[in-house]
Write a protein that binds this DNA or RNA. Structure first.
Length: 965
RNA sequence: GCGGGGAUGCCGGAGCGGUCAAACGGGGCGGACUCAAGAUCCGCUAGCUUAGUGCUUACCUAGGUUCGAAUCCUAGUCCCCGCACCA
């Protein structure tokens, strides 16, 4: 489809502006004059607009990108004209697998590949006239950037928020790396929707995002985000309240989490996940073979079939003690229990949980009803499905008759007294697995040293824990202060007396045999509980969430230790700040950063870093002995978790960003991007913000108070625009044909930007016409005085367009602009013409600059002040008059049609009889032009009027009489 | 299964208690201009009716609330999206 030729209607070629030339001219001038470069300015209000930075793919910018960037650009330009100090930067998420894979395929290097792609992106983005401050450009594969990834990794490490652990992880055989939980979608890899994710047991790096689960959930409330995204995050975090209950199995305690402690007396078996790492610790010898067979069978089942899967299991041979009745409860291994959720083991209450019910039926395990459905008699109850509703407790010892909600509370209390359970909250959110076994990413700044490993192990004080909870808190970073001295054992007296800063402690959880190592950062001693109590902050850290407001409460809380006061007297009170460490895992010192990604590596087999000798072989930062470098790289979502902060100070070589600068610009006032990041980038970035706040890097809680999700761009066939469907429209092609301004305009004129829309080749023409109309008008209009009507129209448009841009209803802004263009007159005041061009400027910046300069202006319209509404010029009477006029035009056409039908011939003249006070609304010239026939206007009281049929008598207010002949 | 969002005229899509036969754009049809085509401008685009009027059907289906519903409520159908054996 070629761009139509145009003329002025008289056969003369119309001057179609050379859009390309105009665009390039202004893009160049903006850049030369540093129009979009900004600095912190305390006198100006800042406004930070950000579009999610793209992964620079080799296929270049697509329509969805263009849409996204134009949405952000319009608001940037608008806010800039409103006088805000607008930060609008762009960067590239340039690490990542596709580049590495493409490089392998093309026998190239990811760096070359990526940098070509970036150059291409930049060229295309410039062509779209996007108002970026290019001096702040960042690319995550740049050592100047990823150095700070490593720095932040070490900060996380120091805070105890990074750990290395063997766990059940997701492995994509196509990506040849592990994936974060968030990157597994429906059992498949997020990049390879056809590739099954395998479950493996591997040692990997994790970040404790779960520490902030509660806050991440809670703070969603204060965000101005699409409800859909908030809901997705809420579901992802997945908070459930319930209880943690300890079942003793073969004398060892095992945890289960349940939301239904009220059904505790109905437990008839326990089920441990068949994938549980500790499963075989409880399998008895005679059951070993069956369990092994079962586990093997489970492994061969595809993730895909899991929802269709029958609940299956096998008895482990072990029995647990019921915590309240002491009954023996069989422990099964099952395929329907998730290893990674809760403790990986559940208590099964078949009468009141459908899954347990099915399982019990299948294996003939007794079903014990403990909650009575009101109105039913339990005697003759034949269960065909589990009863999951509420009701009155039965068969539950001393709790019979209680409502099940009350019972929850009471039963948990009873467990608590026996120290066999407590209230607990579980989240679906898992810790973030960040290590990747691939080359094209930020190297994890860690060195493994065997020497130091042995050294630390040897020098450590050994300390046993019997309290599951304290151990758990330390291990998950919730607590980094210990006050075991509140309850010291005689045996460890010496330890408490001698411990000092820099010592290592080996903590053994006697209940689970887990071992963790701690390094003592600080030791504080108190002579009495009273002294300790003065340290409010410390108390809060030791007993998080408990808010002791008196010593007596604190004492009471510890009263289960009969002689603790004596002990305090005897040994004193010691509190230590500790850090979780991993012996032999040595963080690279700050001064040695960045750990550079070596350029010369061999691609093809496994992780190229692992086979790069020069990289792997290194020296231990502590003992200087031979050591081995970590070869895993970071998930690229690490890069994007804080890039918005880097934009505030992109060139800083001393620190990730200057705190003052970040404080000025952050948070991001307007963030746009696709919804696909709801549970990945947007959770990680929020997590990072909270972490950085806690280490004093930033002062805000939430990085993106206002998030906007643009809709999806579909092809003309209505399907999502994609290469495979062959319905892709290249934005740059469109821009060449119709000009960038028409493209920009069209992208946001179809519908509200948060909705999906289908590309329309006819629609783009209408945007092109809009631009042409404006150009033609401003070329031909006579500058002078605006009519009252035009002033009214212009000011109405200012008001509406301002409001509509503010509320992201760009499509409405454009409707108002169209209507304004439609009512333009041959003469206009320069001021009004200027306002009109300004209103168009955010949408069509190039042509606006051109028209602006054609008016003799030397400065950029981009930096002009947004027009102010002059309310006094807005006169609703004018709208009414216009309506009446329009109605009259309608009526005339209607009359003409009827007359033609009746008389069989076309009328040539129209006579209008107007009430005397309405005279000014009806101008014969205007009407003639509109109707296309001569229209003669009379006042009804005109004695000399021509009115053969007395139609003047039909005239009513707002409705003149009509005669046609 | 759980959660979120939808269903509007030929099409895309506004509207979210009256001013709605329903913005705006597209398409189609007709007209003006022109030797002519495109472009531009004007009108029409549910049906019947009428010298500019009035009526009847209409906003997924069925009920309901209301003086009054495309808009609110109830039930249902269909579509899209997210999560999914989360104990």
């Amino acid at each position: 489809m070629a761009r139509p030729k145009k003329d002025d209607g008289k056969g003369n070629e119309l001057n179609i502006p050379n859009f390309k030339e105009i665009e390039e001219k202004w893009q160049k001038r903006w850049e030369e004059d540093k129009v979009f470069q900004v600095k912190e300015d305390s006198k100006k209000n800042k406004y930070y607009v950000l579009e999610m930075y793209p992964y620079p793919s080799s296929s270049g910018l697509h329509m969805g990108h263009a849409f996204n960037y134009v949405i952000g650009d319009i608001i940037s330009r608008f806010k800039r004209m409103q006088g805000f100090n607008v930060l609008h930067p762009m960067g590239y998420d340039s690490f990542g697998l596709p580049a590495e894979n493409a490089a392998i395929k093309n026998n190239s290097h990811p760096k070359v590949f990526t940098e070509d792609a970036i150059a291409n992106y930049i060229r295309q983005q410039r062509a779209l006239g996007l108002s970026y401050d290019w001096t702040r450009k960042i690319q995550s594969h740049d050592p100047l950037y990823y150095k700070w990834n490593q720095h932040l990794f070490l900060q996380l490490y120091r805070k105890g928020l990074v750990y290395r652990k063997e766990a059940v992880v997701n492995w994509c055989s196509k990506c040849k790396t592990v994936l974060a939980n968030e990157q597994v979608q429906g059992g498949k890899c997020w990049r390879h929707t056809e590739t099954e994710v395998e479950i493996k047991n591997l040692e990997q790096w994790f970040i404790k995002t779960t520490v902030y689960a509660e806050e991440l959930l809670r703070d969603l409330e204060k965000l101005n985000w699409p409800e859909r995204i908030k809901t997705m995050q809420r579901n992802w975090i997945g908070r459930s309240e319930g209880a943690k209950i300890i079942f003793k199995i073969q004398e060892k305690p095992w945890n289960v989490f349940t939301t239904r402690p009220d059904t505790l007396f109905g437990v008839s078996f326990l089920v441990i996940s068949a994938q549980h790492t500790k499963l075989f610790e409880l399998v008895t010898k005679d059951r070993m073979k069956e369990v092994e067979d079962f586990v093997r069978k489970i492994k061969t089942i595809k993730q895909e079939d899991i929802d269709k899967l029958d609940k299956e299991g096998v008895f482990t041979g072990a029995y647990a003690d019921h915590p309240l009745t002491g009954e023996k409860i069989p422990v099964w291994a099952g395929n329907f229990v998730l290893a990674e959720y809760g403790s990986g083991m559940i208590m099964a209450v078949p009468a009141h949980d459908q899954r347990d019910f099915e399982f019990a039926k299948k294996y003939n395990i007794p079903i014990k009803l403990v909650i009575k459905q009101s109105g039913r008699d339990i005697q003759d109850e034949v269960m065909i499905e589990a009863y999951i509703g509420s009701g009155e407790l039965v068969n539950s010892k001393g709790y019979n008759g209680l409502n099940n909600e009350e019972a929850k509370e009471k039963i948990v209390n009873a467990l608590n007294e026996k120290r066999l359970g407590e209230k607990s909250v579980q989240y679906k959110l898992r810790d973030w697995l960040i290590s990747r076994q691939r080359y094209w990413g930020t190297p994890i700044p860690i060195v493994y040293c065997e020497n130091c490993k042995n050294e630390i192990k040897r020098k450590s004080y050994e300390l046993s824990f019997y309290d599951q909870d304290i151990f758990f808190q330390i291990a998950t970073g919730k607590k980094i202060v210990e006050t075991r001295a509140l309850n010291p054992h005689e045996k460890t007296k010496e330890f408490y007396g001698n411990i000092k800063k820099g010592d290592y402690i080996k903590c053994i959880n006697k209940l689970t045999n887990e071992i963790i190592y701690l390094k003592v950062l600080n030791v504080r001693r108190f002579n009495s509980l009273q002294d300790l109590f003065k340290e409010k902050e410390l108390l809060e850290r030791i007993f998080p969430g408990k808010y002791f407001d008196s010593i007596s409460k604190l004492e009471k809380s510890y009263s289960h230790t009969e002689d603790y006061l004596d002990r305090i007297k005897k040994y004193g009170l010691v509190a230590w700040d500790v850090q979780l460490i991993f012996p032999g895992i040595m963080p690279v010192p700050e001064k040695d950063l960045p750990v550079l990604l070596p350029e010369k590596v061999k691609f093809g087999e496994g992780n190229p870093l692992a086979s790069c000798k020069e990289f792997v072989e290194t020296r231990c930062p502590k003992c200087k002995g031979k050591a081995r470098r970590e070869t895993d790289t970071m998930d690229t979502f690490f890069d994007s978790s804080w890039y918005y902060l880097r934009f505030t100070d992109a060139l800083n070589t001393k620190e990730p960003f200057n705190k003052k600068k970040a404080e000025y610009w952050m948070p991001v006032d307007f963030y746009t991007g696709g919804a696909e990041h709801a549970c990945m980038h947007l959770i990680y970035a929020r997590f990072f913000s909270k972490f950085m706040r806690d280490i004093g890097y930033v002062k805000y809680d939430e990085p993106f108070p206002r998030l906007f999700n643009q809709g999806m761009v579909h092809g003309e066939d209505g399907a999502v625009m994609s290469k495979s469907r062959g319905n892709v429209i290249d934005p740059l092609e469109i821009s060449k044909k119709y000009g960038t301004d028409a493209l920009r305009l069209f992208l946001v004129s179809m519908t509200s930007p948060d909705k999906d829309f289908a590309w329309s080749s006819a629609g783009i023409e209408s945007s092109f016409n809009f631009v042409m109309k404006l150009v033609k008008y401003s070329e031909n209009v006579k500058l002078g005085k605006s009519s009252k009507k035009l002033e009214h129209k212009a000011n109405t448009a200012i008001r509406e367009v301002t409001n509509n841009i503010e509320s992201l209803k760009y499509n409405f802004a454009i409707i108002h602009l169209r209507s304004l263009l439609d009512s333009l007159e041959d003469e206009i005041a320069e001021k009004d013409l200027k306002s009109i061009i300004k209103l168009v400027a955010p949408f069509c910046p190039h042509i606006a600059e051109e028209l602006w300069s054609n008016l003799g202006n030397k400065d950029f319209i981009t930096l002009e002040r947004w027009p102010e509404v002059d309310e006094s010029k807005i006169d609703t009477k004018i709208d009414e008059q216009e309506k009446a006029f329009k109605k009259t035009v309608d009526d005339i056409f209607n009359v003409l049609k009827i007359v033609k039908e009746k008389k069989g011939k076309e009328s040539i003249k129209v006579y209008l009889y107007v009430l005397p006070n309405e005279n000014e609304g009806y101008n014969s010239e205007m009407l003639s032009k509109r109707i296309g026939k001569e229209v003669i206007v009379f006042a009804v009281n005109d004695k000399k009027k021509y009115d053969p049929e007395g139609k003047a008598g039909k005239a009513k207010p707002g409705k003149p009489g009509i005669y046609a002949e």
